[in-house]
């Protein structure tokens, strides 16, 4: 006979994963409108690769393939990889990324629920270290290639012409500052026509839609407010400080929040329940640390963006943070006195 309770909320892991995909959809639509169907091609490619690796690993681990494939967790990882990798990356780069995420980060560490690190971010980190040039080539602003040509580039039938690709607005600023110490950011952004209404032109709307998708996840109760809130606040505060000190060398907070992977990171990556913190206070610390580190890495580091490394560093700290932020048990007075 079964144990109580005999009722169950209809929520399920597949439903959670589907909701995450639904929340990503508007961002993907805008991104596609900005870049072209290459984005969708990458998503399809990553999804197929992820399901393939997932199935193989489940088979090897002698787990029910059909049931675990149906939890859609591999799809979420695949989509995040496709959205964080440059859209014109060669197909094998995406597949290597997915391999790192699904096979190494997820299954070799025990599968769903066991991975200490965010799989998509390990994929990004591994690839940007191994293939720094390819991982930094983004479609040049205003470039609109026909779909066939995009596909040809992805699948290696057309030469990768440097003129077709460029750095992201974030990366462009950093490179300019490095090569010429006198560069003024405001002038640079205006002169290169990189600046839109409040952040990188075009990109601002993609990130804005991620924010809306994040709000949807909050409303559906898939994530809690703590991590994204702390992430956004900490990044806003540190960027505002730097900007106030020297507006010529540092971009304003809005530019940072709506550029690169900030919004995707705040709502879809740092909120990964498996590799993140689980206590309310822990999540505040986690989000805070991730936002701060992401800013420091993207501004002072060598990589175009800092979300991946920031999240991974916080992943390392998560168990320790959880341990010291256990909430008070109902009925026990002192915090952490007898119950950790």
């Amino acid at each position: 006979m079964t144990s109580s309770p005999h009722l169950r909320d209809p929520n399920s892991i597949p439903r959670i994963m589907r909701l995450v995909c639904v929340a990503l959809a508007p961002g993907i639509a805008i991104y596609t409108a900005l870049i072209g169907p290459a984005v969708l091609a990458q998503i399809c490619l990553a999804s197929v690769a992820a399901l393939f690796f997932e199935a193989v690993m489940l088979k090897i681990r002698a787990l029910p393939v059909r049931r675990f494939l149906g939890d859609h967790s591999a799809l979420v990882t695949a989509w995040l990889i496709a959205l964080t990798f440059p859209p014109l990356s060669p197909w094998w780069l995406t597949v290597i990324g997915v391999f790192f995420a699904i096979v190494i980060t997820k299954h070799l560490y025990g599968g769903l629920g066991q991975n200490p690190f965010n799989p998509a971010m390990i994929a990004f980190a591994a690839c940007i270290i191994a293939f720094p040039a390819l991982m930094s080539q983004w479609p040049a602003q205003g470039l609109s290639l026909p779909f066939e040509q995009q596909l040809e580039i992805i699948f290696g039938f057309a030469p990768r012409i440097d003129a077709l690709t460029a750095a992201t607005p974030l990366d462009a600023i950093k490179t300019a500052l490095k090569t010429n110490a006198d560069t003024n950011i405001q002038e640079l952004l205006t002169s290169q026509n990189l600046y839109g209404t409040f952040a990188g032109r075009g990109w601002e709307w993609v990130t804005m839609t991620y924010l809306c998708g994040g709000a949807f996840l909050l409303a559906m109760g898939v994530i809690t407010w703590h991590t994204p809130f702390a992430f956004i606040v900490s990044m806003a505060v540190i960027s505002a400080l730097c900007w106030l000190i020297d507006p010529g060398r540092f971009s304003d907070p809005l530019f940072h929040l709506f550029s690169g992977g900030a919004m995707l990171g705040a709502f879809f990556i740092a909120t990964d329940p498996v590799s993140g913190c689980s206590t309310p206070r822990g999540r505040l610390i986690f989000g805070c640390g991730a936002g701060l580190l992401a800013y420091l890495i993207r501004v002072f580091g060598v990589f175009p963006d800092g979300i991946a490394f920031a999240v991974l560093i916080m992943n390392i700290c998560a168990p320790l943070i959880d341990r010291y932020t256990q909430p008070t048990v109902f009925g026990r007075r002192a915090r952490g006195s007898d119950a950790r």
Partner: peptide, 12 residues
């Protein structure tokens, strides 16, 4: 009947 048990994803 309760669906089979899945791994915990620490969703809290």
């Amino acid at each position: 009947p309760r669906p089979p048990e899945s791994p915990c994803i620490r969703c809290t």
